[in-house]
């Protein structure tokens, strides 16, 4: 476990973090686009390489981090995150600046996380959801800032009743959470401004 915790971080911390940041920034600026993000980290299971890279890019000792139960249960993953990011674990989801979620389908409701305040809506949780695909789930039609007309994304797995939960999240604007989807093929984002429609609707 010792070596597992120490190995697998960024090979070139400065440039790798910059590359991952730009992928996330571009994905957040243009929801629905998939920004490639190579396997820059090799974290212990169940943490994925892309989710691990996103976590190391944004998290440090200033950012309380919430882990979903599957990650909580993995001592190796916890040690790896602790060693490479130095992030303290958030006591509750409402204290989390970032939430790392390896099993999105079992995620607690979005409203449990920090939503920010009306005066400081930036004081909210950014969720990093580890998904297996951005194209083989249910088709979601996206509209809002960053999208010229409409964009399509089909991430899977997603939290239960995600589209309905997202509608509520959107209604809390400017408060609300933002989502980074970390998939093997790259990164996509759902800022709180994005409106989601299912194709049937």
């Amino acid at each position: 476990m010792e070596t597992q915790a120490i190995d697998g971080g960024f090979a070139n911390p400065v440039f790798d973090a910059q590359a991952v940041f730009r992928a996330v920034m571009d994905a957040m600026a243009r929801p629905g686009t998939i920004q490639p993000c190579g396997g820059l980290t090799v974290p212990p299971a169940p943490l994925s390489p892309v989710a691990g890279a996103v976590a190391l890019t944004f998290c440090d000792n200033d950012t309380p981090l919430w882990l979903d139960p599957a990650l909580q249960a993995s001592a190796a993953a916890k040690h790896w995150l602790g060693f490479h990011s130095g992030s303290p674990l958030a006591h509750t989801p409402a204290d989390a600046q970032f939430a790392l979620v390896s099993s999105p389908a079992e995620l607690i409701a979005l409203e449990n996380f920090a939503q920010g305040t009306q005066e400081y809506p930036d004081r909210s949780t950014t969720l990093i959801l580890q998904v297996t695909s951005l194209s083989s789930g249910e088709n979601l039609l996206l509209e809002g800032p960053g999208i010229e007309k409409a964009a399509m994304l089909a991430p899977t797995p997603l939290p239960r009743h995600f589209v309905e939960q997202w509608k509520q999240n959107r209604a809390r604007f400017p408060r609300g959470v933002d989502v980074i989807l970390a998939a093997p093929e790259g990164i996509a984002c759902l800022p709180r401004t994005t409106r989601i429609k299912t194709m049937e609707a």
Partner: peptide, 26 residues
Amino acid sequence: NFAYLDEQTKRMIRRAILKGIAIPGY
């Protein structure tokens, strides 16, 4: 220090940029 700033400062600014994009104009 690539681009002058240390990595912790960059992370802090990058987090702020991400929030700024998510809350346009705020």
